[in-house]
Simulated assay, not measured.
Amino acid sequence: MALQPSLRQLIVAGSHDAPHTLDIFLDYVCPFSAKMALTIDNVLKPFFSKGGKYDGKVKAVFRLQVQPWHATSTLTHEAGLGVLRASPENFWPFSLLLFKNQTDYFDIPASTLTPIQIREKLALLAAEIIPADAVEQVKDLLTLKGSPNGGVAVTDDLKYNIKFSRQNSIHVSPTVLWDGLVAQEISSSWGEKEWTAFLESKVLV
């Protein structure tokens, strides 16, 4: 499916020109999304990477699924987009780190923090992965500037992701599309066995 050029690093597994596409809609503060993110890293990336069984055949796109009933969802996704812009090669490692630390951004732990403090906390988390100069860029990208209601520097990228989800009627995470259609059978509980069977049924090797 479509992906604007500036967000191509959202392709987290497989080659950009692979004919088959898994669009995987995940929310950084959704426990089921965290489980699926680890599966992407441990199961799908080896399948789709160079030398893997589906090398050049399938790619996986991480679609940012902001869920407003999680109070910090917008802020965490802004941070992901900030890292994508400042240090694109580290977007997926940062995403995994954020998923592993997602409980810090759950409703109750974050309830006593201001949005500015949460953004600062996310920048410190990014500092564990990305170079120091990129950390400063992320901080700048997440700083409110301009008009009183204009958002931050990555707000337009955030809007793109939200609009993409809305126009495709994606409501919850995780949701997975196979070649543009919702694959209802795919679950966050799937492991290598289930993914192997699914891909064997869909891809002519």
Rank of each mutant, 00 (worst) to 15 (best):
S73F: 09
N101F: 06
V43P: 00
V203Q: 01
I11A: 10
L38S: 11
S33D: 06
P31R: 04
F91W: 05
I24W: 04
T103G: 11
T39Y: 03
N42I: 04
Y160H: 07
K59W: 06
T175H: 05
M1T: 13
K202I: 06
F32G: 08
E120A: 05
N161P: 05
A197E: 06
A79P: 05
E200V: 06
L38W: 11
S173E: 02
A60D: 06
E89L: 04
L181H: 09
L141T: 04
P46G: 00
R85M: 06
S111T: 13
S33T: 06
V205F: 14
I118P: 13
L124K: 14
W69H: 15
G146D: 02
G151S: 04
F62M: 14
G80M: 03
S15C: 11
T114S: 15
A153W: 03
T21E: 08
Q67C: 14
V182P: 12
A110D: 07
P31D: 02
Y54S: 02
D140F: 11
W69Q: 15
L38E: 12
L38T: 11
E194H: 01
F62E: 12
S33G: 04
F62C: 11
P46T: 01
L141P: 10
F48I: 09
P109A: 04
V154N: 01
T175G: 07
S111W: 09
F91Y: 08
S87Y: 03
A13F: 04
G14E: 06
R166E: 15
G51M: 02
S33K: 08
L181P: 07
T114G: 09
T74N: 14
E185Y: 09
T114V: 11
S187F: 04
P148Q: 06
W178E: 01
A60C: 05
A18P: 04
A86V: 02
S147T: 15
T143L: 09
D140A: 12
I116V: 15
T143W: 03
S87M: 01
N161G: 05
H171S: 12
S189T: 12
E128L: 11
E194R: 00
Q9P: 12
L199C: 01
K57P: 01
P148A: 10
G82A: 09
I24H: 02
L75V: 10
E194T: 01
